[in-house]
Design a binder for these strands. Sequence first.
DNA 1: CCAAAGCTGTAAGTTTCATGTAAGCAAAGT
DNA 2: ACTTTGCTTACATGAAACTTACAGCTTTGG
Lengths: 224, 224
Amino acid sequence: MRILLVEDEPELRTTLAARLTADGFVVDQFGTLGAAIEAVMAAQYNAVLLDRRLPDGDGLSLLPVLRTRPSRPPVIILSALDDIPDRVDGLDAGAEDYLIKPFAFEELVARLRVMLRRSGSADAAPFVSVGRLQYDLASREPKVSGQPLTLPRRELAIMDALIRRAGRVVMREHLQDQVYGFDEEISSNALEAHISRLRKRLADAGAGVVLHGVRGVGYMLRAA
Amino acid sequence: MRILLVEDEPELRTTLAARLTADGFVVDQFGTLGAAIEAVMAAQYNAVLLDRRLPDGDGLSLLPVLRTRPSRPPVIILSALDDIPDRVDGLDAGAEDYLIKPFAFEELVARLRVMLRRSGSADAAPFVSVGRLQYDLASREPKVSGQPLTLPRRELAIMDALIRRAGRVVMREHLQDQVYGFDEEISSNALEAHISRLRKRLADAGAGVVLHGVRGVGYMLRAA
DNA sequence: CCAAAGCTGTAAGTTTCATGTAAGCAAAGT
DNA sequence: ACTTTGCTTACATGAAACTTACAGCTTTGG
C-alpha cells in the first residue's frame, strides 16, 4: 500500500506523511512537480495525493504522466479554498476526488480507503478471508475467527500485499516496494526476517494459513 | 465527545460552553459562519449546536458543508422565538432537532444525549458492556458490576471514545481530538499520562478490561 | 472564606518493542 | 557433495510509550 504525496508546504506534508505512516501506509513525499514525475516513472503507487500549487508548475501536469502508467493509480487533489473554481478542471483532467484545505485527516483517510477498495477490485468485497484469517480491506484490520489481531507496521504491510493476491505468488521485488518507501531502501535480509516473524505470529494466532515461499520468485499466502 | 457551538451572542455562547464543559463535553465555540465552516473542515464533531442568525449569513448554510463530511454529525438548531416559521426550513435542510430561545439548559443536554446515543449506533443500545464494565451511553455513567464508577473529565472522555469502539483500535490522533478541543492543544504526553491513570483506576475498580496500547497506532479497550 | 482534596499538564526516568543487521542453519538445485 | 538461496534466531539500537512525581489550579466541604 504505497502512496505518493506531493505537497510543497513542508509542515503539512510532514504531518500528513506521519499520520498516514501511522495508519500503516507507505508514503513517498515530494515537494516539487519534477520530483513527483520522476517518482511516478520509477515506482508504482496505489494512490496519489496531489497539491495543485507547486513551485515548478501545476500539479495537474502529473495526470498525463500517470495515464501512461500500466495501472493508473487514483488521484486525490488537495486544493486551497480559493481554488474552488479549479475543481472542474481537476476532475476533467482525470482526478478521482478532491479535498479543500483545510480538511480533517479522517476524511482524507476515509476517501483514500474508498478509492483503494474500488481500484483494488471492482467487486468491492468488504473483506477477504483466507483460512481462519479475515482481513478488512477498508479498515486494514486483520482478525482470526473474530478476534482482532494486531500486527507491527511492516508485517501488516506484508500481510496486506499478500492477502490481496491470496493464492497467487507475489514477486519478491513487488513485495519490497509495498513495504519500503523510496528513500528507505534496505541492505540486508530485513524482508525475510519480517516474513519469518509474520509466519510465527500467524501460527501463534491460529490463523489457518500458510505463507509459502517460492524460491527465486516470491511468496504466496493460502489456506493451510 | 466533541461539540461545535455556533452562536454569535458572546454571553450566551460562553455560558453554554461553560456548562457543557462542566458536563464533560469538549466544546469548540465560534461566533461566525465563516469560522464555523473552517472548523468543520478541520475537525470532526459528534454534534453541532447552531444558531441561525449569524453576522455573516444564515446558519443553515453550514448544513450542506456538513453533508460532505464522512460522518455527518447531528445538528440542533438554536432559533429565536420569532423565527418559528423557520423551523420547517431547518428540519428540511437536514437538522435533527431545534430549540427555541430561551431554553432550559437541561433540555438542551437531554436532547443532545438522545441524539448522541442515536448517532452512536443505529440499534440504539442503551448501554455497552465490556468485561465487568458497563457504560451508559446516554448518561455517560460507567459502572463496574452495578457499582457506579466516577472518573475525572479527561479520563471519562478517553474511556467514552474507547468503549464506543470497544474491541477495535482507536487511533491516537482521533482520541486526542475527542479529548481536547481546538484551542487547547497540548505539547507533552498528557494523553499518555491520562491513559496510565485510567488504567490504574479501571484495575483498582476491578473492571474486567484491558486497555491495550498498539504501538504507533493507538489504543484498544477489550475484555480481559 | 479557608483548607483539603483532587484534577491536570509537564517532565524525567524507565521499560517495552519494532526493526535492521548479521550469523548460523536448512533446503533446494546443480 | 557443493553452492546458492532462503529461513530462523539473536542482538543492538533507537523510538514510542508507560509510570511516577510534582506543581499549579480548580473544586469541594466545612
